[in-house]
Every structure is written in structure tokens, then in C-alpha cells.
Write a protein that binds this DNA or RNA. Structure first.
Length: 241
DNA sequence: AGCCAGGCTACCG
DNA sequence: CGGTAGCATGGC
């Protein structure tokens, strides 16, 4: 018995959700109650209403740029530095001295590029004036590519856009559901056509993929002991297909 | 030490 | 179109 591709997309979601539970994305800066002077990132499982405020939305946008090709722990440090400068606010960030700003984001790497990207996306965010951007508009902002646009739309603006990243390509090409040289839009469409257009599922699925890939796909050879690989056999019994 | 990190742009053929 | 060098820093 063969399982259809669309079934696999849905069943792998269920499998990952059962393995790891709700992920509470996008993580936001919160006050660390154990140390009043420090901040840390907080996940918020099962709360899909965040971000609540203009600055929280902006913080997610900053995070999407800062984490480009960069470990999230490094992006966190940069965000913490900006928080200490009271710059998780678009107008305040633009008012920062240019060198102070660069030093704040230094831990996230690519500081020359990212400082330009962040200032550009910040001006764009101010111009939006509360409106929700289109994907096409976002892609015209320098520094915003496919993944960043989708991350911003999904996590900052709560729009149902599936996010594809390196980990998604690694896992699903290893499983055999995509070709490793499929382009971004093709992979995005695969997920979006086989899932209902559901904000919660898109939110959790991408977060679960990242969590899963950090365990099994961070170092070559990729996918060693990935439970999803033995999943095909178990699937038939588990879901009585 | 060397590889990897929640990509993107610019430029090449 | 698809392919890839360069971008910077920190963690393990």
C-alpha cells in the first residue's frame, strides 16, 4: 500500500506535533523574572494571538533579518542589545547613532548588510502605518527574500503563508517528498496545496521542522536516526491506512 | 580547527 | 532562468 504525497505532508505534521508539542513561535523578548536586568526570549505555546503590539510586530521583523543565515542564539543577543537601547521600536531604532546600532547587531553577523536591510525594512514598516503588506511588496524591500517575506507575513502579520527554509529542504528531500533542487515556490506550493490554509498549522509546522532539524539535520550526514524515516512503515499501522 | 547557523544580493553563464 | 561567491560573528 502506498501513501499519497498529500497524506504524507499532513501525517508528518501530526507526527512532529505528537513528538514535540506546540512550539510557541515566534519567540519574543520578555523580562527574565530571575534577573530583572536581563531579557530572554520567551515562547508562548498555544497562544496564536501574539504579537499584540506595534513594537512586538516590529521585533519579529527585526528577528527575521537578524537570523538570516545565523544561529538564532546570535540573533537573540543582537535583539537583547537593541532592547537595552530601547530600539525595539521603529522610530527609536532609526534615531540611533549608526555605529552604536551596528555594534548592537554585531553578534548576529553580516552587520554591514543587515544594518542596511534593517533600516530599509524599518522605514517600510513605518510607511505601512498599520496596514498588512502584500508578499510582492515585501519582496521589493532590500534584504527581504522569499523566506523572510513569508516569516514576516506568517509570524508578524498572522497571514497564512507557509515558510520554507534550509531545514525544510533538507528534511523533505531526505524523506523523498521533494527534489533537492526544487525552487522555493515549488516547495511552498507543495505544502500549501496539501494543507488547509490554516494559520495555526503553518505556524506550528515550520517551527516543528526547525526543532526537528536541529536534532537530526544540523550536521552531515543529515538525517541519521531521523524517526521520520522509519515513519513510513509505522504509518500504516499507526493511522490504519 | 573547522563546520555550521531559522538567507540575501549581485553577478555570472 | 539556475548556480554561486561574498557577507561576519559566535558556538560547539
Amino acid at each position: 500500500m502506498t501513501i499519497k504525497k498529500e497524506d504524507k505532508i499532513r501525517l508528518i505534521y501530526t507526527k512532529l506535533y505528537n513528538l514535540y508539542g506546540p512550539q510557541g513561535w515566534w519567540p519574543l523578548l520578555g523580562v527574565d523574572v530571575s534577573n530583572e536586568n536581563s531579557v530572554k526570549m520567551v515562547h508562548h505555546p498555544l497562544n496564536y494571538d501574539l504579537p499584540y503590539t506595534r513594537n512586538e510586530t516590529y521585533e519579529i521583523i527585526l528577528g527575521t533579518i537578524l537570523t538570516q543565515n545565523t544561529a538564532w542564539t546570535s540573533a537573540e543577543i543582537a535583539l537583547g542589545n537593541l532592547k537595552a537601547l530601547n530600539a525595539i521600536n521603529p522610530e527609536n531604532l532609526l534615531d540611533l547613532d549608526s555605529e552604536i546600532f551596528k555594534q548592537a547587531i554585531r553578534p548576529a553577523g553580516f552587520l554591514n548588510q543587515k544594518s542596511v536591510y534593517i533600516k530599509g525594512v524599518t522605514k517600510y514598516y513605518i510607511e505601512l502605518d498599520g496596514k498588512i503588506p502584500t508578499r510582492k511588496e515585501l519582496l521589493e524591500v532590500r534584504g527581504v527574500g522569499d523566506e523572510t517575506a513569508d516569516s514576516i507575513l506568517l509570524y508578524a502579520f498572522k497571514q497564512p503563508e507557509f515558510v520554507v527554509d534550509t531545514y525544510t529542504k533538507r528534511i523533505f528531500s531526505n524523506i523523498g517528498l521533494i527534489d533537492c533542487n526544487d525552487n522555493y515556490i515549488k516547495i511552498k506550493n507543495l505544502f500549501e496545496t496539501h494543507l488547509s490554509s490554516d494559520l495555526i498549522i503553518y505556524n506550528e509546522y515550520h517551527a516543528l521542522i526547525v526543532n526537528h532539524a536541529k536534532k537530526y539535520y544540523s550536521r552531515k550526514p543529515y538525517g541519521v536516526n531521523d524517526p521520520l524515516l522509519t515513519f513510513k512503515k509505522k504509518l500504516i499501522n499507526e493511522y490504519k491506512l
